[in-house]
Design a protein around this nucleic acid. Structure first.
Lengths: 374, 374
DNA sequence: TTGTAAGCGTTATCAA
DNA sequence: TTGATAACGCTTACAA
């Protein structure tokens, strides 16, 4: 069935530039120029051509354009396979907004899930069908021995610093945030903490744990660690571990909100009161953190700003603009104090803290993140 | 900086098929065949060519392929702008898995948010850079008077039935599910219900409300309705409305889990106990529904199956296979009874229901959904 | 200001 | 079995 607008009604063929040229009585070059540089045409020619374009519903074929231009205006955003949609959604949306504004299209995909898919995406990059890559996973993906870094397209990392010099990077001050999480509990009188980690080898995990340890050891606090994986279920597993302990910590620092929520739900179900018997801090500031019971004290990551800054950095590379500098852009997280944390059980005084908000200042980064041996 | 694998080291140029041909001492046609139809070559030629391909790290240019083939192997998935990531993520992931398996790449985007973006995506479809579209919004997007239905690509609808004959469609039995939600409350003795709706003109909303009304009127139950919008915040708003009522309903049917969770959090905060004073049912079966307090009685949508079936329907169109039939594929939702629902306050007996699970059978669809006048 | 024509990298047709 | 060649639809020197 041929539609009115974009297809030749006599034949089910897409409208080409030559169709427009013929109908308007000009050359294809003129049509192309009418679209790209309207002011280089005589007004009457321009009007005639543009009218014809509209009349026939002509849209330039992107494949031909891409082939000719050697660029596709597509950007790949690499996300973790089982990612916290709740957290990344905001980052991704703002990446998309920035890219769209410049005429780029975003493809979101994980490279650690479906093998077929990973191969196809890497192929796409090598096939020059993708102009740039934004990585949210802390790793440059390698498939079949091919690494995206060798594909010859600009790359930007958001949320994670990688061991790659001169890679534009946008980060949150993870270490300071973890310190803020921990110190918040310590300030409430907690002297025995549990740290519920993300995946062991992940950048955010490593840096946050470092911050946690710094704060914990500085105050001579007793600490435990449970190896988690950011998910609700892994928070629940951490809770089961917690419940099995003879002497339970009174404060829990989680590496994600999902884990904190899974943890709270599980200990609550076992009759342990939050925050009366155990205080829990999350990380990320997802929307659900304000709707769980009790509401979650957490670190709010500036997800929109992270995405926007990363996208702008990539656009700068794509448009050949000079790099702003070699240092990562570091944005501050913010401690949101809500109802999942309170004074340690043996502490007397109790204050309402629902309304307190303490911003964590981003301290200028001095030392680069040094990667532990992989 | 030229990388080893895919770029000519003397010149920062991508490896082309002619480079391979030259290096292997064959024509470009032979290289192309070696990749596409390996068995049509003499084994030794094939090996020589494939070795060279690997050696030079050649990947065919996708733009050239797409231009030549008239197809890009890209599929657009249209999602609502402010969508429930929690629900759609599963659908989208399984769409992706199916498409990847057949060598297609998925672009996810909303057309009702950023104007720039919408225009660009529609352009992409009209520009024949996208081979097919999957719509999760219940509407064929129209931008600047251009509708995707006129772009000449196959379209499939998931989750919503549209007023478009012969449009392949995959659905959940929304009406029966809404009946199951409602009847569950009625069976528990509730005689005064509140229906918290999705956006007024949305397919799912219309059909579910119809089911709700059928069940409610069949049992002569008193009902109220609050106009919501699927989000946590709109659930909270519904709760404020509920709290303002002189005679409050004892059962609440929500059109999404987010709304149910927002509702519960808000009434609980106001001192109304769930399910002791009010029972709440959600819709969707998102992961958080099992981690909120209390856990949420809801309808589990088979999100993976929805996505997979939709993707397969689209692939069938793309590959020119015959349509399975004109009727929508209807998958059954399932009522998950958890802790947010219980006997109506004035009912005496109380039974534990945490472990009950009652599947909702998909009844064969007899009548097509008739759209109310738009 | 407008037209002519080359070329982007591939694949399919046809001929050898 | 392999090679030469003509598209695919567009943009941009260069020529008029």
């Amino acid at each position: 069935m041929a539609s009115r607008r974009t297809r030749d009604s006599s034949n089910d063929r897409a409208v080409r530039i030559s169709d427009v040229a013929e109908a308007a009585g000009v050359s294809t070059a003129t049509v192309s120029r009418a679209l790209a540089f309207p002011d280089r045409l005589r007004p009457e020619t321009r009007e005639r051509v543009l009218t014809t374009v509209r009349l026939l519903g002509y849209t330039p074929n992107e494949a031909a354009r891409a082939l000719r231009a050697g660029a596709s205006r597509m950007v790949l955003v690499v996300v973790p396979h089982l990612y916290s949609g709740a957290f990344f959604a905001g980052v991704i949306n703002s990446i998309d907004a920035e890219l769209s504004a410049e005429g780029y299209t975003m493809i979101v995909g994980s490279l650690d899930g479906i093998e077929e898919k990973a191969r196809r995406l890497v192929d796409l990059v090598y096939a020059r069908q993708i102009d740039g890559v934004i990585v949210l996973t802390g790793r440059i993906p390698v498939i079949d021995g091919r690494s995206l870094r060798d594909a010859g397209v600009p790359i930007v990392s958001i949320c994670c610093e990688m061991d790659m010099p001169r890679l534009p990077t946008v980060l949150v001050n993870d270490e300071e945030c973890a310190i803020a999480q921990t110190r918040h509990l310590i300030d409430l009188g907690h002297r025995h903490l549990l740290y519920v980690s993300g995946p062991e080898d992940h950048y955010n995990e490593i840096v946050r744990y470092r911050g946690y340890l710094r704060a914990a050891t500085a105050s001579n606090v007793k600490t435990l660690r449970y190896g988690g994986a950011y998910t609700l279920e892994s928070g629940a597993a951490a809770a089961r571990y917690f419940l099995s302990l003879d002497r339970r910590p009174t404060g829990v620092v989680c590496c994600s909100d999902e884990m904190a929520i899974g943890f709270i739900k599980t200990v609550t179900g076992a009759g342990v009161a939050v925050p009366d018997e155990v205080s829990v801090v999350g990380f990320d500031g997802i929307e659900f953190a304000d709707y769980c019971e009790p509401t979650l004290t957490t670190i709010r990551q500036p997800h929109r700003e992270l995405g926007a800054a990363g996208a702008r950095a990539l656009l700068a590379s794509l448009q050949g603009l000079p790099r702003a500098g070699d240092n990562p852009i570091v944005l501050p997280g913010e401690l949101l104090i809500r109802d999942s944390t309170g004074p340690a059980p043996n502490t007397r005084e109790r204050r309402s803290n629902a309304a307190m908000r303490a911003p964590v200042k981003a301290s200028p980064r001095r030392a680069k993140f040094e990667r532990s041996a992989t």
